[in-house]
């Protein structure tokens, strides 16, 4: 019963955050700040992880191909498919649930504990619109982060492949161009937009509706990470079933 209550409250929160909008002159600054915190601030870790995981995917694929009848171009092909379809949109979103999600939950949760949200409400400000809406808009730029992850993942794969001596640059590039289906990019970005919505709203929900003190802020961050990850995995399954099968 509590789960249903939480789901209902979550959807009511989504409706509420579009009501009584904050003045644009104020909102503009909030959006820019959240773009800086959530998008620009994530580029470093995303680039690092994407580059090295791309390299690992390539090495694992290359090491598991021991049949001489299988063309070397398969390494580039498998790297591209893994990174575009799953690693960049899904795996990276779960990492972002830890980084961005925890940040959102703890920052909003701390505002709840220290009565800053009450202060906004007393002033007649729609605190959900003030706090969550800019994060939602900022996360609309999340596909940019994922594009970088896709690009650097493949570059990481190419680097590992060439420097590890698993195949030539030509074979790898031929592989990443082989049987390319543009719809796979569309599929990846549809998922990315869905995950961006989840990454902005579920952690906000857990921060906004938390009760208690500093300890509970930590617990809310953990719970938020768990539910954001679970929702991403479930949406990933549904989106794949609906769009690719």
């Amino acid at each position: 019963m509590q789960y249903l209550n939480n789901i209902g409250t979550y959807f009511l929160m989504i409706i509420e955050l579009f009501r009584k909008p904050t003045k644009w002159s104020v909102m503009r600054h909030l959006i820019l700040k959240d773009i800086d915190d959530l998008i620009i601030g994530s580029l470093g870790i995303v680039s690092f992880i994407a580059f090295f995981v791309g390299g690992v995917v390539t090495i694992q694929t290359a090491l598991n191909i021991d049949n001489p009848l299988i063309p070397k171009t398969l390494v580039g092909f498998a790297t591209r498919q893994s990174i575009l379809l799953e690693f960049a949109p899904t795996f990276m979103s779960i990492i972002m649930a830890g980084k961005v999600g925890s940040f959102i939950t703890s920052s909003i949760g701390t505002m709840r504990v220290t009565e800053q949200i009450d202060a906004l409400e007393v002033m007649g400000i729609n605190s959900l619109n003030y706090l969550v809406f800019p994060k939602l808009v900022a996360m609309a730029f999340y596909p940019f982060v994922i594009s970088i992850a896709m690009f650097l993942g493949i570059i990481g794969g190419l680097t590992a492949c060439v420097y590890g001596g698993y195949s030539s640059v030509d074979d790898f590039i031929t592989g990443i161009q082989q049987d390319f289906q543009p719809f796979h990019i569309v599929y990846a970005f549809i998922k990315t937009f869905l995950f961006a919505f989840v990454l902005a709203t579920i952690p906000s929900y857990h921060g906004y509706y938390m009760k208690g003190g500093a300890l509970e802020v930590g617990e809310a961050s953990t719970t938020s990470f768990v539910w954001t990850s679970v929702t991403i995995i479930l949406l990933n399954y549904l989106a794949t079933q609906l769009l690719l099968s």
Binding site: K20, T110, M111, T114, E115, Q116, D118, A119, V122, M123, G124
Partner: peptide, 19 residues
């Protein structure tokens, strides 16, 4: 209500300043 709230000032127990 919004106009009325603009006429209200509140000092919270923990000050509630925006960090």
């Amino acid at each position: 209500k919004r106009d009325m709230r603009a006429k209200i000032g509140m000092v919270f127990q923990g000050s509630a300043l925006f960090d």
